[in-house]
Amino acid sequence: MGAMKNIAIDLIAFEEGQLDQQETLELFGLLVKSGLAWTLQGNYGRAANELIHAGYLTRDGEVTEFADSMLEELSAA
């Protein structure tokens, strides 16, 4: 139950624009891993698919090395 509560809090923070890029990727990784990405509102599934197809997340919900390197470049800029 604790993990679900955290995901709910993170979803609210995401919808309010309070998550940074890393936190957003981690949230969508959890949504993919748990299967919630495919059962929540359609925009979550579409966003998860876009992150997977863009190479930021694996199909298993892991943040990729490509995403890590992109985030490092953005934070250094």
Rank of each mutant, 00 (worst) to 15 (best):
L30K: 13
A54Q: 15
G35L: 12
L36W: 04
E16I: 03
T64C: 06
D20G: 14
A76C: 04
A54C: 01
S75L: 14
L27G: 00
R59Y: 02
A13R: 15
L74W: 08
Q21K: 12
K5I: 12
M70Y: 03
A76D: 09
L27C: 04
D20M: 09
Y44I: 05
A48I: 05
Q21A: 14
W38E: 13
Y44Q: 05
E72Q: 14
L36Q: 09
T64V: 05
G17L: 10
D68M: 07
W38T: 13
N49W: 04
L27E: 02
Q18F: 05
S69T: 10
S34D: 05
I7Y: 00
A13Y: 01
H53R: 15
L71C: 05
A67K: 02
S69N: 11
V63W: 01
D60C: 03
S75G: 07
L57I: 11
E50F: 04
L74K: 13
S34L: 04
N6R: 13
A8D: 11
L74D: 08
E50Y: 03
D10K: 14
L31M: 09
E23H: 10
R46D: 10
I52F: 02
Q41C: 01
L30G: 01
M1G: 14
Y44L: 11
A77E: 14
V32L: 11
H53G: 03
N6H: 10
E73I: 11
L27H: 02
L25K: 00
W38R: 10
A3H: 13
A48V: 07
R59G: 07
Y44V: 04
L30W: 12
R59L: 08
I52A: 00
L11H: 01
N6K: 12
A3V: 06
L25P: 00
K5F: 04
V63S: 01
L31P: 02
F66H: 13
V32D: 01
A47L: 13
M1N: 03
L71K: 06
